[in-house]
Design a protein around this nucleic acid. Structure first.
Length: 778
RNA sequence: UCGGGGGUGGUGUAAUCGGUAACACAGCAGGUUCUGGUCCUGUCGUUGGGGGUUCGAGUCCUCCCCCCCGAGCCA
């Protein structure tokens, strides 16, 4: 059993970063996250992922998580949304302190900081129109050109900005732009807009502001003011990170508040099969009447899922299940459904209800007689108390699908002459049927006396079916929901949204009959109709007019054979963008150009393969710049016998050891490298030790011979010494030895690794391998 | 190299330093069962491709391929 979400959250790359920051004391040991929705729509399952991430981290590290509305664009935002968002976050099970926060609370400080930027010459007022600004921004491959207003003096800029703020200027008259770099390859850095004029009434600040900050300005400042440490957002903001850092650095906002600077971290947003996630498309569905509002049970909104009967526990379990990463991916909706079933299984009482009734007359049962049968609300494996009584009489209703005149192979239900168990009741045998217009309209059956709770000897039941007593059952309207779209990836298609909708996403069943226990069911109550599915009592349900929404079907391994999974149908066409993308210049070409500029490099490329016995590929890599080649020459010195090995070291081991450093910044010298390679080639040290020493040579100019001598790193090839280590390791891992002998030969690497580790890397790996192999096969 | 980010079974996510490719979903085959539910068991994957370094590569080097994001006064 799983469910209840008591398991510790899985680790992910974001938590790894946080743990590392905690260890290094980067934020003075503080952790603070935030969830920053714009109140311009309802929250959906994708937001739930972000909410569970941010609030989940907060819970895990024992810190708060801020709910902050990014309310910087009054034209699009509405209080209806801020209310729904707070309701949804709370429903998901998270609290956000005393109250929600608002970016608009920081408008004063944002403005003051912007004035400072102007004063420092880091921002200017631009009068270009939006079209002109676009033109001047250049393109992905062409640099931008300065606006004629870019060189304006500080005083003039300040006066103009104050006019903007005072409301003296009409919408669109001008904007405040950061003065950064119009040639930046990151378009976000080409003098981004900071403020625009909007004479609009804001839900919270009213008419106090005729100007509003842009996201790229407001967001980092809001984070910094609140002391957010890890500002988690989705992948499409990767390009914004440079600007995020610029705003925080240039305004000095963190320092002004005595706080560490927040770090933006991006993760892949959630995509789900058979639905759409963009607010615009969801809004279209609502506005065009394809669904019944934001909380339509087919909607992927939190409100929709709530009305569908999902519990927050299931949604949290789902977000745990799918994890967090930087890879764009599409989660199949079956995983969500799995989580919902796995959750409901433990909490939903079982009752009987028939969607499409077929009349059964128990001819052996006296008319008017009613027996009350005890029926537990939960099966034994759920182990929860509670039971009710279900009335049994002469006239019953069973599911139309549970009777077949000609049962197909494997059919475990009622058919002429067959006996089935009525769940919690008697076994009945079909004796005859009444047919009208080719349709079976009634089954005539006889009950097996004494078959309640036990199956009498000699009776063979074909299966168990659900039923209700016709005289006692309660009518219900049952709404069967299915996936909203019939195509797996509607958002990747150019087709009209409406044409991709699943016409069977909602089927209203009018004539359903459920057992009397459901008559007074509370709104929001979750039930399992046995063998049918999980249901929730709809908010529109009334006494005498019961309405049930199907939350999710039961897993059905019987019908599963019918609908084949259309997995392959989701084949994607190459994107138009990818087709027009210009080919990238490769590193080969880059090195070739360097050699064109510097003839010496070209000469080296031509001469070295023959001169030193190295491959053409190695020569290519060695001759892309001077320092690399110089290092090679210095290391080889006069000893050409070492040349090939030196080349391999420089090609394969130098880049990772260097990391972000350039060769010039490292402490590595040619003679030292030559000595290391010589020692390695001579078998004085193992390759592993050599790599470790190499790192120290790069980092602090260590002398290889000295390090080897001082630390006793000489290679050990003595079989006796190694054998002792091998035996010790094998003895310690007797279980794995058995696995190895049972055929798991990949374990050899594990044993070798253990022995080498134990020898501090000095054991001759070939000898270790041979000895280990010998012992294991002995 | 326009810049940035990615590529592990059908799906999602893992894999300390280079040392057993793991967990879950789905699928398939069984078992248990008064729900064709639950539960249990088994089964299915060598990491986008080539080359290289290494005793050993998902992990390091290299070449190639593919995908995503970026030119809103949206967020």
């Amino acid at each position: 059993m799983t469910s209840t979400g008591a398991e510790p959250p899985k680790g992910d790359f974001i938590r790894d970063i946080i743990d590392a920051d905690l260890r290094s004391g980067k934020h003075g040991g503080r952790i603070l996250t935030r969830f920053p929705p714009e109140p311009n729509g309802y929250l959906h399952i994708g937001h739930a992922k972000s909410i569970c991430l941010n609030f989940g981290i907060a819970t895990q590290y024992g810190t708060p998580c801020n709910l902050r509305f990014d309310d910087t664009n009054p034209a699009k935002e509405d209080v209806e949304y801020v209310e729904s968002i707070q309701r949804d976050v709370a429903w998901l099970g998270f609290s956000f302190g005393e109250r929600a926060l608002y970016a608009s609370d920081y408008f004063d400080e944002m403005y003051a900081l912007a004035e400072d930027l102007v004063r420092e010459g880091k921002a200017y007022v631009d009068h270009l129109s939006d079209d002109e600004i676009k033109q001047h921004r250049g393109s992905l491959s062409a640099p931008g050109t300065p606006s004629p207003y870019r060189g304006r003096g500080v005083e003039e800029n300040l006066a103009l900005f104050r006019q903007m703020r005072a409301g003296d200027l009409p919408d669109g008259a001008c904007v405040l732009r950061a003065l950064i770099d119009l040639t930046a390859s990151n378009m976000k850095m080409r003098d981004p807009l900071l403020y625009r004029i909007r004479h609009a009434t804001h839900d919270r600040t009213g008419d106090a502001w005729p100007i509003y900050p842009m996201y790229d300005y407001a967001h980092p400042i809001s984070d910094a003011i609140e002391g957010i440490t890890h500002s988690i957002c989705t992948l499409e903001f990767e390009n914004n990170r440079e600007l995020y850092d610029w705003v925080i650095a240039e305004t000095g906002v963190s320092e002004r508040h005595g706080l560490s600077r927040p770090q933006q971290i991006e993760f892949a947003r959630l995509k789900l099969d058979y639905t759409v996630m963009s607010k615009r498309k969801l809004l279209t569905l609502v506005e065009d009447g394809h669904v019944d509002g934001w909380d339509d049970p087919r909607m992927p909104t939190i409100a929709g899922m709530r009305r569908r009967g999902y519990r927050p526990e299931a949604i949290r379990a789902f977000t745990d299940l799918i994890g967090v990463a930087k890879v764009n991916s599409v989660v199949d909706i079956g995983k969500l459904e799995y989580c919902v079933r796995d959750d409901l299984n433990w909490v939903a009482p079982r009752v009987l209800g028939v969607l499409r009734p077929l009349k059964v007359t128990v001819t052996s049962w006296p008319a008017g007689d009613v027996e009350l049968l005890d029926a537990p609300y939960f099966p034994a494996d759920v182990d929860k108390p509670g039971q009710r009584q279900v009335p049994f009489g002469r006239t019953l209703l069973i599911e139309r699908d549970d009777f077949a005149l000609e049962p197909p192979a494997g059919y475990q239900r009622l058919a002429p002459g067959r006996t089935v168990r009525l769940r919690h009741g008697y076994c009945i045998t079909c004796d005859d049927v009444v047919v009208e217009d080719g349709q079976v309209v009634e089954v005539l059956a006889s009950h097996v006396p004494g078959s309640v709770g036990t199956t009498p000897a000699g009776v063979t039941v074909a299966g168990v079916v659900h039923w209700v007593s016709a005289d006692h059952a309660v009518p219900a309207e049952v709404r069967l929901y299915d996936r909203l779209f019939r195509v797996a990836r509607p958002e990747e298609s150019d087709a009209e949204l409406a044409t991709m909708l699943n016409p069977e996403s909602l089927e209203v069943v009018a004539g359903a009959m459920v057992e009397p226990a459901l008559a007074g069911a509370d709104i929001g109550g979750r039930w399992q109709l046995e063998r049918v599915g999980y249901f929730v009592v709809d908010q529109g349900s009334q006494p005498g007019a019961l309405v049930l929404n199907r939350t999710v079907t039961l897993r059905d391994s019987w019908q599963a054979a019918e609908p084949p999974a259309p997995a392959a149908a989701a084949a994607r066409e190459k994107s138009a963008k990818a087709l027009t993308r210009p080919p990238k210049k490769s590193r080969v070409e880059f090195r070739a150009e360097a050699r064109l500029r510097d003839p010496v490099l070209g000469e080296r490329l031509a001469a070295w393969p023959a001169a030193f016995g190295i491959t053409a590929d190695e020569a290519d890599l060695l001759t892309g710049d001077r320092p690399t080649g110089d290092l090679f020459l210095a290391a080889v010195a006069g000893d050409h016998a070492l040349a090939a090995a030196v080349a391999r070291w420089i090609v394969n081991e130098l880049p990772p050891a260097l990391g972000d450093r350039t060769l010039g910044e490292s402490q590595l010298t040619g003679p030292a490298l030559g000595a290391l390679v010589a020692a390695t080639e001579a078998g004085e040290i193992t390759g592993q030790v050599a790599k470790e020493v190499f790192v120290e040579m790069v980092e602090r100019g260590a002398d290889p011979r000295q390090v080897i001598a001082e630390r006793g790193l000489a290679q050990v090839s003595d079989e006796g010494a190694i054998a002792a280590l091998v035996d010790a390791v094998l003895a310690e891992h007797a279980g794995k030895v058995a696995e190895y002998r049972a055929g798991k030969s990949a374990l050899l690497g594990f044993f070798v690794g253990q022995v080498i580790k134990r020898s501090q890397g000095t054991a001759n790996p070939q000898v270790v391998r041979e000895l280990a192999l010998g012992r294991l096969t002995a």
